[in-house]
Amino acid sequence: MSDKPNIASLSGRKKVVSNKKMTFMEMIYLPAIIGGFGITLSHFFKKKVTLQYPEETKPRSEIYRGMHVLKRDDEGRERCTACGLCAISCPAEAITMIAAERKEEEMNLYREEKYASMYEINMLRCIFCGLCEEACPKEAIFLTDRIVSSDLHRGDFIYGKDLLVEPVDQRIDISHRQTPEVLKFKLDKNQSHNS
């Protein structure tokens, strides 16, 4: 057996698709060219699809993976317990945090006994893959459909807790990112200590 491939079909479903013979009409250029003019002209009068971006916006998908949010629970306590799973699962190594022990008087600030005293995401490193959201066992970090805006300084892209934690009065709804089972589970009053 030599280099020569089997000219017969390997798959039994072969179909030659390129036809290189030109008919006379194709030889004289004009019919195809005029046909092309027709196509472009039909688009000339079509409604334009352009989105005038800064003024008009297109709604992003509800599950769009944009800027992160650190959630608070219903009582306004931060959910994050600084377990570090998000940092480990991050392929870009963009997340850093420092864990701290919750003090007595901070009961209304943090949900768990351990919390992140410093939580930073380097938004320039981040690739918005969503693995941190998946890794979080505490419903603390979610990606949202907000986008991170561009900036002039590289240093300004390290987002700390001031930017990541959702404000108490402006909650961000992330329920559409969760499965129906989780949503059902969260309604269960008996399990409320967990969710």
Partner: peptide, 10 residues
């Protein structure tokens, strides 16, 4: 320069 290796064994 923008990575802190102190955390989580990295």
């Amino acid at each position: 320069t923008d990575k802190d290796d102190r955390f989580f064994g990295r």
